[in-house]
Design a protein around this nucleic acid. Structure first.
Lengths: 260, 260
DNA sequence: ATAATAGTGTCTCTTAGACAGTATGAT
DNA sequence: ATCATACTGTCTAAGAGACACTATTAT
């Protein structure tokens, strides 16, 4: 067996250029609650929102862009994303973060050879409230996604945002990331609302059937379980309705969604 | 690292270092068929294999590694991956390729600040046969995955390979990427074999039930459809058995696997 | 009473899962 | 006859989907 040694390069010859930086950019999604003025207690209206910052550079005039920043040699990409998150929102870890994809094509950044490692982060609204309070002079703002897409975003951030949204929608149906937008204990309506807010096409005709599908049966484990008190009685909440609503939580069991 | 000072680039502020390169590394999976010496026609034994190349550098002695190479400013990351694929296997496009994740942690590459954009590629065995024939003096070899994991792989390639395998297993159950390892028309046994080869834990007790689950019913679309001739009669194959086996193909319909 | 939400029960028809059996054709 | 694979049919019980109805309590 002969080897083609010439092909493997040990050290990069000096004549080669290398990237001018490797930033991470973050698509931070949250769900905003807007209380509705109804006659009796009701569920707030919810909308999916994304965090954008206003760029005030010469390069990309007054455009909105995904928050992000250059990674350092001494940190991992995850650490960089967390650092940016902290700088921008004052959120310190303990939030869902995942790497989406790395973007590069010639000319994507007028400043040079700068690929971008995109991240997706899902954050509960409450965490951001605290964060924003702490730094209201920020150049960051939450946009409902339709509004965000109506903007002329900097760089290829529209493409990144599109991919990120698709990723979140897929995972919303195939995993239990709905957790990221819910308290530990929640009502069925809240869960339904979260799913429908993220995936508008998701419609459930019958709440009763939906409930049964998620609870354990004889030959199936359950995704949800009812919250019970010391006596084993179900716990109810009247936060969003006069009629007490059963509280549920996610079980340890996460089914592997499969098509076969 | 001092040698790299020379390549300070125009745009970024001089005080900042930037990466020394951004290679793509490819986890190329294929399924090897090993005919079994049986008394009558039979299905070949199949095993999942990954392509590795032998590194002969001072840095990482005689180790095996994922094939890959540095990306250029003038190309996208996908193009770089395709280019590497072509150089290593002579395969020219038309194969499944997808970006997995970008890896970096301080020290992952002793040569410097070199993150790696990992790709996953699924290639049908036949394509590789042609490719290997064309370049037998290659330093590349296919390893059954268990053997690959038994090796002391260079860099963090074991971690990458682990993630890649997990990704392929997930998608094997949640999408129809089994396509990548199958001809257009195939028997149920072949499909089952592919799934079981990639996901060993996937077991089907009853072939008849498996078949019914994949075909269209009154209130469900089908993942598969039987191949029929001009008269509407099913087409059979005796390639792997004396008993004629119905041929199937994937339909356009790909269900969205969901847990709710 | 009504508003907005939550909950229960029941009926039917699909279909998953299990089981049992036959078929093919080369050796 | 046997081997390795493929196909067919039936039975049962589970559960999805549809429908109809009641409950809660502030206003």
């Amino acid at each position: 067996m002969h080897r083609l040694q010439a092909k493997r390069i040990r050290f990069r010859p000096k004549k080669h250029r290398s990237p001018d930086g490797l930033p991470t950019d973050i698509c931070l999604f949250t769900i905003l609650s807007v209380p509705r003025p109804t006659k009796t207690r009701s569920l707030p209206h919810k909308q999916l929102a994304v965090l954008l910052i206003e760029r005030k550079s010469d390069t990309y005039g007054q455009q909105w862009a995904l928050p992000g920043g250059f990674s350092k040699e001494s940190e991992t990409l995850d650490e960089c994303a967390y650092r940016e998150l902290k700088e921008e929102t004052n959120i310190d870890r303990n939030v869902h973060i995942e790497q989406l994809k790395t973007y590069y094509k010639p000319g994507r950044d007028p400043r040079g050879w700068i690929p971008s490692v995109a991240y997706v982060s899902l954050v509960h609204e409450d965490l951001l409230k605290h964060a924003r309070a702490a730094d209201d002079a920020s150049d960051a703002r939450l946009f409902p996604i339709e509004e965000a897409f109506a903007l002329d975003l900097a760089f290829d951030h529209r493409e990144i945002l599109t991919d990120a949204l698709q990723r979140v929608r897929e995972k919303m149906l195939q995993t239990n990331i709905a957790k990221a937008f819910l308290p530990d204990e929640f009502t069925l309506s809240e869960l339904l609302q979260v799913i429908e807010t993220v995936v508008p096409s998701f419609k459930v005709s019958d709440r009763g059937n939906f409930e049964r599908r998620l609870l354990a049966t004889t030959r199936r484990q359950g995704i949800l379980e009812a919250v019970v008190d010391a006596d084993g009685k179900p716990v109810y909440s009247t936060e969003y309705s006069n009629s007490p609503a059963k509280l549920y939580r996610f079980t340890d069991y996460t089914p592997t969604a499969m098509i076969y």
